[in-house]
Computed example of a mutant assay.
Amino acid sequence: MTEAPTFPPLMRGEAVAGRADPFERALALAALGCDGGTVVHNVQADRLRAAIVFAPEVALEDAMAMLPVCGVGFQNALGALAPPEVAVHLTWAGGIRVNGAGCGFLRAAASTRDPAEVPDWLVVGLEVPLLQTEAEPGRRPDMTALYDEGCAEVDPVRLLESWARHTLVWINRWSDEGNAAVHDVWIGLVPNVGEEVQQGGRRGVFLGVDERFGMLIRQGAETHLVPLSTVLEEGP
């Protein structure tokens, strides 16, 4: 039986069993009006999945900062538990890369898709493969799992707890200092700035982000903004 994780003050955990998706459960709880800080989780032998419910007090486009906040929280959490040679990076849209290969992702959904509206809730989910389950693990060299990257000694329950703690630290920094504090760390974890990307129906050079973490893409002589809220998934 998996040990129940312990969460910091202001957060409370709720486990789901079997193959149940904690992100979907968090969306349902959020729609019913659960408290912000609820962490729904499902730790299995082959993967760690979790989701945090937020109760924003700012417009959606500002509240989307929780996606990079949770990303930095995860990078800090894994960095504290993994061997020092393990490199953890993030993609603009929420992907997680370990030693250069895709290793899970962060995702988000909210009660509204209007960037100017204050959402009733925002949910950020995390999914990280622990073991590769494909019959031929080497068939996708661009994808990996945590235990294949020197992290076999990382306890997924401890990783979940650490993610919650580090994310809470960054939430507090964001609340006190604004986006700039998060931006300075997060942008250093996004490896493909300056490269050609395709996002939001546009293809061009990824120049960086604006003050709300929107992607700036240069197409020829023009620069276009792709708001971070465009990565939101459909809510319930």
Rank of each mutant, 00 (worst) to 15 (best):
3 E>Y: 00
5 P>F: 03
5 P>R: 00
9 P>A: 14
14 E>H: 12
15 A>M: 12
15 A>F: 13
16 V>F: 01
16 V>I: 00
17 A>P: 01
18 G>W: 01
20 A>D: 12
23 F>H: 12
24 E>S: 14
25 R>G: 03
27 L>H: 02
29 L>G: 03
33 G>P: 11
34 C>Q: 04
34 C>N: 03
35 D>N: 06
37 G>H: 08
38 T>V: 12
41 H>C: 14
50 A>F: 04
52 I>R: 15
54 F>E: 00
54 F>D: 00
55 A>W: 09
56 P>S: 08
56 P>L: 14
56 P>C: 13
61 E>V: 09
62 D>V: 04
66 M>S: 05
67 L>I: 11
67 L>Q: 08
68 P>G: 06
70 C>P: 01
70 C>G: 01
71 G>S: 09
72 V>L: 13
72 V>H: 02
73 G>T: 09
77 A>G: 01
77 A>W: 10
80 A>I: 08
81 L>C: 03
84 P>M: 08
88 V>H: 09
88 V>A: 05
94 G>V: 11
95 G>L: 04
96 I>W: 02
96 I>C: 01
96 I>H: 03
98 V>Y: 12
101 A>M: 13
103 C>W: 09
104 G>N: 05
106 L>F: 14
107 R>D: 04
108 A>S: 10
110 A>W: 14
111 S>F: 14
111 S>I: 15
112 T>S: 10
113 R>A: 07
114 D>T: 02
115 P>C: 11
116 A>Q: 10
116 A>T: 15
117 E>C: 12
119 P>S: 03
120 D>R: 15
124 V>L: 00
125 G>R: 04
126 L>W: 03
129 P>H: 11
130 L>H: 10
130 L>E: 06
132 Q>F: 00
135 A>L: 13
135 A>P: 01
135 A>F: 07
138 G>A: 13
140 R>F: 15
148 D>E: 11
149 E>T: 13
150 G>T: 15
150 G>E: 02
150 G>K: 02
151 C>S: 05
152 A>N: 00
152 A>M: 01
153 E>D: 11
153 E>P: 03
155 D>A: 05
157 V>N: 04
160 L>T: 11
161 E>K: 02
161 E>T: 01
162 S>A: 09
164 A>V: 01
165 R>T: 06
167 T>P: 06
168 L>W: 12
169 V>C: 10
172 N>F: 02
174 W>H: 09
175 S>D: 05
178 G>S: 09
179 N>V: 07
180 A>G: 06
186 W>L: 08
190 V>E: 04
191 P>K: 02
195 E>Q: 14
198 Q>T: 14
204 G>Y: 12
204 G>F: 07
205 V>Q: 13
205 V>R: 15
205 V>W: 12
206 F>D: 04
206 F>I: 00
208 G>A: 04
211 E>K: 10
211 E>F: 10
212 R>T: 01
213 F>G: 05
217 I>V: 14
220 G>V: 13
220 G>E: 03
221 A>S: 11
222 E>K: 11
224 H>N: 12
225 L>Q: 09
228 L>K: 10
231 V>K: 07
231 V>A: 02
232 L>T: 01
234 E>T: 13
234 E>W: 07
235 G>Y: 08
